[in-house]
Amino acid sequence: MADAATHTPSDNAKKAFSMFADPAAALASARHEFGEHGGVNMSIEASATFTVMEPETMKRMFAGELGPDRDFFIYSRHFNPTVLNLSRQMAALEGTEAAYCTSSGMSAISSVLLQLCGTGGHVVASSALYGGTHALLANFFPKACNITATFVDINDMQAVESAIQEGKTKVLYFEAVSNPTLQVANIPELSALGHRNGLTVVVDNTFAPMVLSPARLGADVVVHSISKFISGAADIIAE
Rank of each mutant, 00 (worst) to 15 (best):
A5E: 15
H7M: 11
K14S: 12
A16E: 15
F20N: 15
A25D: 15
L27H: 04
A28G: 06
A30E: 14
H37V: 01
V40C: 11
V40A: 15
N41K: 14
A46Q: 12
F50W: 11
E54Q: 14
R60P: 02
F62G: 00
A63R: 10
G67A: 10
R77Y: 11
F79Y: 14
L84K: 10
E97W: 00
Y100T: 11
C101H: 06
T102N: 08
S110W: 00
L114G: 00
H122I: 02
L129Y: 03
T133R: 06
H134L: 12
K143T: 05
C145R: 11
I147G: 02
F151H: 08
V152S: 01
V152F: 00
N155G: 13
D156G: 09
A159H: 03
S162Y: 04
I164W: 06
Q165N: 04
K170N: 07
A176Q: 12
A176K: 05
S178L: 02
N179T: 15
P180T: 05
N186E: 13
N186A: 07
G194C: 06
G194A: 04
R196M: 10
N197F: 06
N197D: 09
N197R: 15
L199H: 03
T200G: 02
N205C: 09
P209V: 11
P209F: 09
L212C: 07
L217T: 03
A219C: 10
V221D: 03
V221E: 01
I226L: 14
S227Q: 10
F229S: 14
G232H: 08
A234D: 14
A234F: 08
I236M: 12
